[in-house]
Design a binder for these strands. Structure first.
Length: 903
RNA sequence: GGGCGAUUGGCUCAGUCGGUUAGAGCGCGCGGUUCACAUCCGCGAGGUCACUGGUUCGAAUCCAGUAUCGCCCACCA
């Protein structure tokens, strides 16, 4: 295996361009690809990704999801599990139509001018052009998806799954067609599910209107009326009754009488109904069954007619008498005017109400009575709840359980038909007699299943499905369902479904319900909910605000690795993160640090090891304390990362690696070892072992970091010596395993690190010239002797000590006491020689006094704790012992500082 | 109306069995052309962990309440 040359400077664009091509060429993304080293005996790991909109382009949210998904899949791949990361695209029915309609409008065309067939042709062309965009962008992020299995929610496989799913639900009584009150968007000219209606608090008005009573002769009495309250006066045109509470004495006499609805001159009954709130408004409610859900129920209880007074565009229709042809809001204004003219507008007052607005168009949604297809969700929701309650499927973070429970408890049936064109046609056919035949056959049923009329007489439902219906089938429609394919058997259910918490109901809940209903098994084991990405000020990124960050620009300038690291580093499940340039730059600097560390290691290869030598394990017999410390920290990091990965604590993964690589390996490991590698007095075998230790740790860190920063790690890994058993590419290399740690060595080295820090601090505080070499004498206790001795040459360099003298007792240290700096760190005490002038002596005294005061403060706290019997008796023994040794250490420090200060 | 989340140095955030002196990055101050890295190195300043009360030997962490901000759910005309 030959080493690859590394460029002097880290250039992410150069690295990333070629690395992805290498992965593709090696065919490592598919679980059964030629380059895959997956162990078929291990359980497969399947990640379910929300397929992005086919007309969309990558935003930071996508980038974050992709980064997190890819992190998980790469980790599993390196563990040798067969991994499936199936990429896809969603046709996004209403969203895509919105985009295309905008384009058509600029061309002076519209849905109406084109007609259904030509419109759909245009859509297909449009989608053909856009579909490659986001896929290419996902690759730039580094998604190691199995592109050979790319799926689209409008492809034949999805279409087949949709037909079968719906036919099956219909057969099971879970899909039905009925007239019901639905949400209607006049702008989109379609019905909407409850989720697509945004409840918007609005200040409106509550008007009170007089409805005149009809007397025995059938005439409206100008002097007798009942006053009703309404926020939507235009619905007066559809009123078919007035309701009062049965116990309301104010109105008991009127129940059974009739009133005349203004303008349409319809005489309707006053009925008594429990649903009326006596305290609200006037206590009398106008009943408009075709435009209000409560009214529809009231109407049904009392046999009142339902009159829809609007067209699909939100214009008053022929039932509106003189107001026909007026837009609903214009009609409202005119009606109010006319009521006032008649003297029947009794009052108006401001009123806070919740207005439903269309998620897509923001238009005011009208409740309308329409015949539509529905999914009966109660039984499905119950199963979904059972699965999460039993723990078969786990939602992360756990607090979403409650939200999940609440939403699935008492949800209303799902209106799945849409009066749009771009989407899957509902596979229902109607015969002239109105019989319905639902069929999973692509060309429709051969005959009406009720009356047997032939196919030529049947007409297919013009409506299409809610886009989330096909999305809801995604975990299995992409694996060949309804056919019993090998893929389905192998990769269903999925392992982790990753998505933003904003579509938990739209998508996650629907997948869960449909998966359980159609396959009798929940579609995934874990639901991992990501937070949303916000701008540096916490605002939601949006095109209109202009605060959208384009991830591709970040990739171009700082690299996909940096972007991924930054996104994953800020990813706390379910919590939003603010994202700004500083975070990516920090991540880019980290990649740069890693690059340079690798360059250093490669360049420090002892001459006795020929270039291109295969990897050798360091000889444990020849390792000094610094090497043993590096190995021990490496093992500790493996453990930390493993734990964080299995807990889905991805931010912790990046934090641990950042610290291990930068603050330990680079700041101390490499600095200690540098001197050793250059030390001619050591045997070449020793220096070789030292170098192999560096390579070993670097290798481990590259592996651990690969799921986060796949490009740079792949490139660097390609440049270091490898073992004969290693594959050619890091992406399929083995995940490291933790080994035993050497705790005693860790303590020694950390003590020495503290000493070095303290000496540097003393020098800086004393204003010693940075480059000056000063004589330093250190009193080293016996137990630290070997480590200190072995590291002396490194310490010398790191604190600019010349000469560095090791003495064994403090008496010895004090014997040649002269002016200088004193450093006390636990058992270690050092004296830095410095020519005395009054100024510096003062500063030194001041510094020592401050240190003494600190130490005394901590000592007092520790002592008072230990003086508390309750603490000593009740706290765990280890905590008490820790406090004791801490106190002893502080005592020692205090004593030494006092002595030095002559107290 | 119901529910959830956040509140930790100037900024962004870690802190997941309660246990030494609460950490990091950015920013800030001082000093550095040390042969991997100025996308860097060394040193430092800066926090009564929103507030009040409680539980506990011990609370940023657990409980109750309050405040501010944000989010979700909700068919009273």
């Amino acid at each position: 295996m030959t080493e690859r040359e590394l460029g002097k400077a880290y250039r992410p664009a150069e690295v990333e361009g070629s690395v992805y091509e290498r992965w593709l060429a090696a065919d490592v993304f598919a679980p059964d690809g030629t380059g895959s080293r997956a162990d078929a005996a291990k359980p497969p790991f399947v990640i379910i990704q929300p397929p992005p909109n086919v007309t969309g382009s990558l935003h930071l949210g996508h980038a974050q999801r992709t980064a997190v998904e890819d992190l998980m899949i790469r980790h599993a791949r390196m563990q040798g599990r067969p991994t499936l990361f199936l990429p896809g695209l969603d046709h996004a029915s209403i969203a895509a139509q919105f985009v295309l309609d905008g384009i058509l409008a600029r061309e002076g065309e519209s849905r109406a001018t084109l007609g259904r067939d030509r419109y759909l042709e245009r859509m297909s062309e449009f989608v053909e052009r856009t579909r490659g965009v986001i896929l290419g962008q996902q690759r730039r992020v580094g998604a190691s998806a199995d592109w050979s299995r790319l799926r689209f929610t409008m492809d034949d496989g999805s279409a087949k799954a949709v037909r079968h799913a719906f036919a099956r639900l219909h057969r099971d009584g879970l899909a039905y067609r009925t007239a019901a009150l639905i949400n209607w968007c006049p702008t989109c000219r379609t019905s909407l599910s409850d989720l697509e209606v945004i409840a918007t608090p609005t200040t409106g008005s509550l008007w009170t209107v007089r409805y005149h009573l009809v007397d025995g002769s059938g005439a409206a009495d100008p002097d007798a009326w009942i006053t009703v309250a309404t926020t939507r006066p235009e619905t007066i045109l559809g009123d078919t009754g007035v309701a009062v509470h049965p116990d309301d004495e104010l109105y008991t006499a009127l129940v059974g009488r009739r009133v005349r609805i203004p303008f349409v001159d319809r005489d309707v009954p006053i009925v008594a109904d429990e649903s009326v709130d006596r305290a609200f408004g006037t206590g009398a409610v106008k009943v408009t069954p075709a435009h209000d859900a409560t009214d529809l129920e009231t109407g049904q209880r009392h046999g009142l007619a339902s009159i829809d007074v609007m067209t699909d565009d939100g214009v008053i229709n022929e039932h509106g008498g003189a107001y026909a042809g007026l837009d609903r809001f214009a009609a409202r204004a005119r009606i109010l005017e006319d009521l006032a003219g008649l003297g029947d507008l009794e009052g108006e007052r401001p009123h806070e109400l919740i207005l439903g607005r269309c998620q897509r168009s923001d238009d005011v949604v009208e409740p309308r009575l329409k015949t539509q297809w529905f999914i009966r969700v109660a039984p499905l929701a119950e199963r979904a709840l059972a699965v999460t309650r039993s723990g078969q499927t786990r939602i992360l973070p756990e607090r979403f359980d409650k939200i999940w429970e609440h939403w699935l408890t008492g949800i209303r049936d799902w209106n799945v038909s849409r009066q749009l064109w771009w989407g899957h046609r509902i596979p229902a056919w109607y015969c002239p007699d109105g019989h319905v035949t639902v069929s999973e056959l692509e060309d429709g049923p051969a005959a009406c299943e009720t009356c047997g009329r032939g196919a030529s007489e049947l007409r297919q439902d013009p409506d299409i499905f809610d886009t989330w219906f096909s999305s809801g089938l995604w975990p299995f429609s992409t694996l060949g369902w309804p056919d019993a394919t090998d893929d389905l058997a192998r990769y269903y259910p999925g392992s982790v479904m990753e998505t933003g918490y904003d579509i938990i109901f739209f998508w996650v809940a629907r997948m869960m319900m449909l998966g359980l209903a159609l396959l009798d098994e929940a579609p995934f084991e874990t639901v991992y909910l990501s937070g949303l990405i916000r701008d540096p000020y916490g605002k939601k990124m949006s095109k209109t605000t202009g605060n959208v960050v384009n991830p591709l620009e970040i990739i171009d300038t700082t690299g996909a690795d940096a972007l991924r690291f930054a996104l994953i580093h800020g990813a706390t499940p379910g919590l939003d993160q603010r994202f700004g340039q500083a975070k990516v730059e920090n991540a880019r600097n980290f990649a740069n640090k890693l690059w340079n560390a690798a360059r250093f290691v490669l360049g420090a290869r002892p001459e006795t090891i020929p270039a291109g030598s295969p990897r050798r394990a360091p000889d444990p017999e020849l390792l000094g304390p610094s090497e043993r410390w590096i190995r021990s920290r490496r093992a500790a990091t493996v453990e930390t990362v493993d734990r964080a990965m299995s807990d889905f604590q991805f931010a912790e993964v990046t934090r641990a690696l950042y610290e291990a690589i930068w603050s330990e390996y680079c700041d101390w490991g490499l600095e200690f070892v540098k001197v050793r590698l250059a030390d001619d007095s050591l045997s070449s075998a020793t220096r070789e072992a030292t170098w192999w230790t560096l390579v070993e740790a670097l290798d481990t860190y590259l592996r651990l970091l690969h799921p986060v920063m796949p490009f740079v790690t792949e490139e660097l890994w390609g440049a270091i010596p490898h073992d004969a058993g290693d594959p050619a590419l890091l992406i399929v290399a083995d995940w490291p395993s933790a080994e035993e740690q050497e705790a005693p060595i860790e303590a020694d080295i950390f003590a020495i690190i503290d000493l070095i820090g303290a000496i540097r601090n003393a020098r800086a505080e004393a204003g010693v010239e940075a480059g000056a070499w000063l004589a330093v004498r250190v009193a080293v206790p016996d137990d630290l002797g070997p480590a200190f001795n072995a590291l002396a040459p490194s310490i010398e360099r790191l604190v600019r000590a010349r000469p560095l003298t090791q003495v064994s007792t403090r008496e010895e240290l004090n014997r040649s006491a002269n002016a200088g700096l004193t450093v006390v760190v636990g058992d270690l005490e050092a004296r830095i020689e410095l020519s005395a002038d009054e100024d510096s002596a003062d500063r030194e005294r001041h510094r020592l006094e401050k240190e003494l005061a600190d130490a005394e403060g901590f000592l007092t706290a520790a002592k008072s704790r230990l003086g508390n019997d309750a603490f000593v008796q009740r706290a765990p023994a280890a905590v008490v012992a820790g406090a004791r040794s801490r106190a002893a250490e502080l005592e020692e420090t205090v004593a030494r500082l006092r002595e030095r200060l002559g107290r």
